[in-house]
């Protein structure tokens, strides 16, 4: 970012300051890397913060085993290019129990394969700080999250008992077992993310661009058939449609949208005139209004 007056330049500087502060004060930080566009921006900012050194912490990916295949390829390439260690973790107990998004419902599946898996990984490696790419503009309970968000040894979040956060003076102190979740993109909006990706030429997973992909229509949502594990109901046949994704997660839970946008400007054009908010593409958030707050209390990002 070269233009000093630009608000993106300010956002970039704030995020870099946050990332550096964590590295300077915490014993064992890690960056949660979900492979989506926000993670791509966060990783890029981390590389800028420590240039010419690689970021002095590993990347951690919680692999539910249901991610799009293209995401996994992209993940491995990005970690290699950044010169960073990539850790992956899967809830093997959940896997052994056969927990999957089709038979167990989105919310139980998410609890076991994402939230529990994340807690296991953080405990296993003893991380005392984990970067996440969440933004305050995504959802109402996120709007009240601190940038440095304190978590109990059980990884719980207590919205009523958050540390006051003033200026850019961050209290990073934790006791053994306690940890911080840190959100360097707190003050970014979706539009900022896309604008920054465009200005800095940041690579993103090709799934964001429109292409012919095999999909089935379920409950009014288009679901991509990414591999043979997806059970098809009688009469359901995957058909090729020109689709893309606004957000990326586990393929059975991520709705595709029909689109012709195969360039960055095309994506942003669609977004600017979009009339649905970002997370509605994720089936997990549809339960009820406060579902995100509940998940966060339990340790979800």
């Amino acid at each position: 970012m070269s233009n000093r007056a630009s608000q993106l330049h300010r956002l970039e500087a704030q995020s870099i300051e946050i990332i550096r502060e964590v590295v300077a004060e915490m014993a064992r930080p890690v960056m949660l890397y979900s492979i989506g566009k926000d993670s791509s921006v966060m990783l890029h900012l981390a590389r800028k913060a420590f240039y010419p050194a690689p970021p002095p912490f590993p990347l951690l990916h919680i692999d539910t085993t249901w991610k799009f295949r293209e995401m996994i390829e992209f993940r491995d390439r990005m970690a290699r290019e950044a010169g960073m260690e990539l850790l992956t973790h899967t809830n093997t107990q959940g896997l052994a129990d056969g927990v999957n998004p089709f038979d167990h419902g989105a919310s139980f599946y998410t609890q076991v394969m994402k939230t529990e898996a994340l807690k296991q990984a953080l405990d296993l490696h003893g991380f005392d700080a984990a970067f996440g790419g969440a933004r305050r503009d995504e959802e109402k309970s996120r709007a009240k999250e601190r940038i440095f968000s304190f978590r109990t040894p059980q990884h719980g979040w207590d919205p009523k008992n958050q540390r006051p956060e003033l200026w850019s003076v961050f209290n990073t102190r934790v006791r053994r077992g306690e940890s911080l979740r840190v959100f360097p993109l707190s003050n970014w909006t979706e539009l900022d993310i896309w604008q920054y990706i465009r200005a800095e030429n940041i690579p993103i997973v090709p799934l964001y661009y429109a292409a012919e992909r095999p999909v089935v229509e379920r409950d009014g949502m288009l679901v991509m058939v990414d591999d043979e594990r997806m059970p098809l109901a009688a009469g359901e046949t995957p058909e090729l449609r020109r689709v893309r994704f606004r957000t990326l997660g586990c393929y059975p839970l991520t709705a595709a949208m029909e689109s012709e946008a195969d360039t960055l400007d095309g994506i942003v054009t669609e977004m600017l005139i979009a009339r649905t908010s970002e997370r509605s593409g994720r089936l997990i958030d549809h339960d009820e209004a406060a579902s995100m707050e509940k998940k966060k209390r339990e340790g979800y990002f």
Binding site: Q7, R136, D137, E139, K140, S141, R142, A143, K144, P159, K160, Q162, S186, N187, T189, L191, A290, E293
Partner: peptide, 27 residues
């Protein structure tokens, strides 16, 4: 704007919430 369950029930805002909007002139 009132995001958290507790404040919906009480009808008051209990914490700092950050909101974003933009016009043609400013964010």
């Amino acid at each position: 704007v009132d995001g958290l369950e507790a404040e919906r029930e009480q009808g008051i805002t209990i914490d700092v919430a950050y909101r974003f909007f933009a016009t043609d002139a400013r964010k």
